[in-house]
Design a protein around this nucleic acid. Structure first.
Lengths: 131, 131
DNA sequence: CTAGAACCTGACGTTGACGTCAGAGGCAAG
DNA sequence: CTTGCCTCTGACGTCAACGTCAGGTTCTAG
């Protein structure tokens, strides 16, 4: 398929796909006229890249890890790298959970009728307190 | 305390604190000469801000939420906003968990002796497969 | 009183993951 | 054949959260 279809199917922009290729995260074959062509599984590959970006990995880190994710090569270093990134993500999950619980507490407090800042009745033009 | 001490105690840079004030996330009183002074609880405030930044919230979003986090005001809108952000974080946790599990699978595969890419013996100058 | 650390404002620099625009070529339909 | 959409390269623009530098003031230890 060509780049437009891949973009649509993977849910990213055409620009992003060219950027991924530039960063060594995605390959393409070229037609004689220079147009990029991709196999079916490129969709999965792009979604994996998105997943890793979403976890806060940089292009360079992803480029380092992808060959190992493809299960084509495995050195002690690459496995350590994978484990390190997994641990980073684990820590990130813990942090996010703490943040969510904190927000939950705030919501509970401000929703509870016993709370000091519960909302009751008509929109009382209450002056928001300063910072 | 002055800005340098707050920075040290909260684990951020002086520049970051001035930026937070600029964004309306932090207040300070000023000495006659113009130097910023902070109360003790500013440390907690800064760490909360860091926490929210860490969860991917923008300055503007944090500025919107902070008054409610302070449990000073609560409108249906602000509570909805808090809940929306919490839900976003929840979704983020789910996504991160999926990503971590994916990495875990890769690690298991590449570590398992049955795996097609296990590392054995001396560093065999194995050619990493292309992208 | 003076040196040096800390602070001030203002402003430009940085980085990553793209967005966007220009100008030119490619491809299927009518 | 030409119309219109897709694609190409190259290059500049963007945005957020600061980093960093300049040039000047203030505080504090000796």
């Amino acid at each position: 398929m060509r780049i437009g279809e891949l973009a649509t199917r993977a849910g990213v922009s055409v620009r992003a796909l060219r950027y991924y290729e530039e960063q060594g995260l995605l390959r393409s074959t070229r037609s004689p006229s220079g147009q990029r062509h991709y196999p079916e599984h490129a969709v999965d590959r792009v979604q994996l890249v998105q997943m890793l970006y979403g976890a806060g990995l940089s292009s360079k880190t992803i480029a380092d890890l992808l060959p190992c994710v493809d299960a084509q090569v495995s050195t002690p270093e690459s496995r350590a790298r994978l484990a390190a990134e997994r641990d980073r993500i684990d820590a990130q999950i813990v942090e996010l959970t703490r943040t969510r619980d904190r927000l939950d507490a705030v919501i509970t407090l401000s929703t509870s009728p016993a709370g000091g800042c519960a909302y009751e009745g008509a929109p009382a033009e209450q002056e928001p307190v300063a910072i």
